[in-house]
């Protein structure tokens, strides 16, 4: 196992709030096994705004106490087997949300604000089960007009994968701005990249606009094909066959353990 990835995983401590991106935005699958080997558990996962394979594997490995998410699935490969089993068994705490509420919570943290108001949600069971969200009457409306307040989401650490970083720790995220939102809101950000380039990403206006400055980045490690079996935008496609192989294997705890013991190969 890559020493850099091991070192990054060792920054995660039990009980941390960990922000992870949606399956098409740049999931650092390369960090999953190092995280499991490191073994820090009782994690509170924040899916931005939904989760997939990585969430399922961390749940299956028993590292997760809480999942805050708008959805968890393996996309075309179907339901997330270990997550679904954990829900059925009642072994994880659920914080069901809706996508823009997760974005709103991160946005509040980005601004240093205590909360963000948002439309929708009134009358849903999503809202009914969230005792951390509040409903107030819009103070500018002159009576009535209920609106939901989403408290700021402050992850301890954000973890994602991107195409490239430079030697200064600037990371190119292109138009995947949710990765920046995660980093702004989080105390630490751990990034794996396809490659580290020798030129400064901020020196060229063409890459500067899509670059997350090193200010927000705690550590970077090179991990070629680090999103696999997920794809990475502009780089490679999702390996749906591998997702299906996992989905079949992880139907049982034994099958999951056997799959995870196998060598990860891209």
């Amino acid at each position: 196992m890559n020493a850099d990835l091991r070192a990054m995983a060792s920054r995660i401590r039990p009980g941390m709030r960990v922000a992870l991106p949606v399956d098409y935005a740049g999931v650092s699958m390369a960090m999953t096994r190092p995280m499991i080997a490191h073994g820090a558990g009782d994690l509170h996962l924040i899916c931005v705004p939904t989760g997939g394979l990585q969430v399922d594997q961390l749940v299956g490995a028993g590292l997760v106490r809480t999942v805050e998410t708008s959805a968890v699935s393996l996309g075309e490969a179907g339901g997330a087997p270990r997550f679904n089993q954990a829900v059925k068994d009642g072994t994880i705490r659920l914080r069901d949300a809706t996508c823009p509420a997760i974005h709103a919570g991160l946005m509040a943290a980005q601004k240093g604000s205590p909360f963000m108001p948002m439309r929708g949600l009134i009358g849903t069971d999503v809202l009914r089960h969230r005792d951390d969200w509040q409903v107030i009457d819009n103070p500018f409306a002159g009576g009535g007009d209920p609106v939901v307040l989403i408290p700021a989401i402050h992850p301890d650490v954000a973890i994602f994968h991107a195409p490239m970083a430079d030697r200064s720790g600037n990371v190119w995220i292109g138009r995947r701005r949710e990765l920046a939102a995660m980093a702004y809101a989080s105390a630490e950000t751990l990034v794996t990249v396809e490659r580290i380039v020798e030129h400064n990403l901020l020196a060229d206006e063409a890459t500067a606009a899509g670059t997350l400055p090193a200010l927000y980045v705690t550590a970077v490690a090179e991990a070629p094909r680090g999103a696999w079996p997920y794809g990475l935008w502009g780089e490679y496609a999702t390996d749906t066959d591998e997702l299906l192989r996992y989905a079949r294997a992880a139907r049982t705890a034994e099958g999951f353990a056997k799959y995870m013991a196998g060598e990860a190969s891209a």
Binding site: G79, F83, V87, K88, D89, L94, D96, T98, P100, I122
Partner: peptide
């Protein structure tokens, strides 16, 4: 979200995604 009593639903579907917002807007 699922079939049965939340949160320990006997059948769990992925989740609400953006529906709790987009249905309103």
């Amino acid at each position: 979200v699922g079939v049965g009593d939340y949160p320990q639903t006997q059948v769990r579907w992925p989740g609400s995604f953006g529906s709790a917002y987009l249905y309103f807007t």
